[in-house]
């Protein structure tokens, strides 16, 4: 009967697979382990690895973060908190900005949510501490003086709000409407 033959075949196949499996693992015994031993050997990580978080600056050396709360909203563990405030010139910024790295799971959602490219994850992962409170990073600890992965983008060059000069001076903007004239 073909069915019977099939079953026999399957049993044999199974047995062979079993033996193959045991053989494979056995052969492994004599191979050189592929482990890299961490503190002695530090493997260079790709730039998009997700570890310690920084707040970057735009090409004008201004803080990029506008404290829009989007990163804190997207953070699945709610470890970002901040307070936005207004600078004298009307620019929105973070009066304080705090990331609790003892909660952060380095998922990178904050970076993805950030509309100004301010918050970025870096490959620097050696941040362990014994005291939890020392893992709470304030804005001073997070702010760096470069643009991180993107050196060009400047949110305020595209936004409609004014920080300096007259309206209509930003990228892709027309001159402001003159209310006192009907000429186009």
């Amino acid at each position: 009967m073909p069915g019977e033959k099939n079953r026999l075949l399957r049993v044999t196949e199974g047995l062979v697979a079993l033996i193959q499996g045991f053989w494979t693992t056995f052969i492994h015994l004599f191979r050189k382990p592929i482990t890299e031993e961490y503190p002695e050997y530090k493997r260079p990580l790709p730039p998009r690895s997700r570890a310690r978080i920084i707040l970057t600056r735009d090409p004008d050396f201004e803080e990029r973060c506008v404290a829009c709360y989007l990163c804190s909203a997207s953070c699945p563990v709610s470890c970002i908190s901040m307070q936005s405030a207004e600078r004298a010139d009307g620019r929105r910024y973070a009066a304080w900005f705090r990331i609790n790295f003892s909660r952060c799971i380095y998922c990178g959602l904050c970076e993805e949510a950030c509309p100004t490219l301010a918050i970025q994850l870096t490959p620097d992962f050696e941040t362990c501490q014994y005291d939890l409170l020392t893992l709470v990073a304030e804005k001073e600890d997070l702010l760096v003086d470069h643009g991180g992965k993107n050196q060009e983008y400047n949110y305020y060059r595209y936004a409609g709000v004014l920080v300096d000069g007259d309206k209509g001076g930003h990228i892709q903007e027309a001159r402001p409407v003159n209310l006192k004239s009907n000429l186009p």
Binding site: V66, C68, Y69, L70, R92, P115, T116, Y155, Y158, A159, G160, V161
Partner: peptide, 13 residues
């Protein structure tokens, strides 16, 4: 004509 404003706009949300 809408500006690129949501992050700095208080209405956002």
């Amino acid at each position: 004509h809408h500006p690129h404003d949501c992050p700095v706009c208080d209405e956002g949300g």
